[in-house]
Amino acid sequence: MTSVRLRRWSEPDAPLLAGANTADMTAHIAGPETDEQVARRHRNYLRFWEEDTAHMFAVLDGDEPVGGIGWWHIDRDGVAAAETGWFVLPHAQGRGVARAAVLLTIEDAAASLAAGTDLYAFPSVTNRPSNALCAGTGFELRGEEDFPFRGEVLHVNVWATTLGER
């Protein structure tokens, strides 16, 4: 059995974003990005740590990088909160990697943010695996809404967990 761990996003992790930029992997989030958009996303992930606006991680299964996850600051109806999002490459799916990574990310957010801060996830209502992952990692379903993302409007479930109350 391998162990899942998170590593701070770094320069060598760019191929993970490219690997996740397929029609299948982006079907629930407005489709693939251009190569320049992927490169910009990678640069942003590196920069976020320096600006302390987000914690972005590579997900490792043993020593193999198999995905990405993170949390970032958001404003939710005038209240400071955080949002999380993730991906696991297809060859590593179905092994509990995403579940372990989400739990580790919740721990990191709880250690970094004030107790009582809500951590949100916004998977598309049609993304059954991500919705099941939210339900299985302690998030509470708080409703549905339309969510602007990459120039489109996605219909998402609103999942949240309150940090420090787990």
Rank of each mutant, 00 (worst) to 15 (best):
S112I: 08
M1T: 01
R95P: 05
A81D: 05
D146M: 11
V88Y: 12
P129Q: 01
F48L: 04
N131M: 05
T26G: 09
G94K: 13
P148T: 04
E11W: 13
V158D: 02
R41T: 06
A92N: 12
E33L: 12
F149H: 12
R47W: 10
A115T: 06
L103E: 11
E152N: 07
E36H: 08
N44A: 08
V125I: 15
V66S: 08
E107I: 03
P148F: 09
E64S: 15
L6S: 04
T84N: 02
R5M: 03
H42A: 02
D77E: 14
G136F: 05
N44S: 02
E107N: 04
D52H: 10
W159V: 06
G136H: 06
D108Q: 12
T137Q: 06
F147I: 13
E140T: 15
L60N: 01
V59L: 07
V59M: 03
A98W: 00
T22C: 11
L163Y: 11
L113A: 01
D61N: 14
L104V: 04
A135G: 11
V97G: 09
A121C: 03
R47N: 04
A111K: 06
G85M: 07
A110C: 13
D77G: 10
E51Q: 15
W86T: 02
Q93L: 06
H55Y: 02
R40H: 03
D13E: 06
G78T: 07
A18W: 15
Y45V: 06
W49D: 07
A80E: 15
G151L: 01
E144R: 08
S130D: 08
E145V: 11
M25T: 03
A80P: 13
E51A: 14
E165F: 15
D52M: 10
G78M: 06
G68R: 09
L154T: 01
Y120T: 08
G19P: 09
A98H: 07
E51K: 12
T117P: 09
T126W: 02
G68F: 09
M56S: 04
A115M: 01
L6Y: 04
C134I: 02
S130G: 11
T26C: 11
G164I: 13
L119S: 03
T137D: 08
A82C: 10
P148C: 11
G143Y: 14
P123T: 01
L154K: 04
R142I: 03
V79Q: 04
I29A: 14
L113Y: 10
D52S: 14
G96I: 00
A111G: 07
S130M: 05
W159R: 03
H73W: 10
G136S: 07
F139N: 05
D75N: 12
H155G: 05
E11S: 10
D61W: 13
A18G: 03
T53Y: 12
T105L: 14
V158M: 09
I69Q: 03
S124L: 12
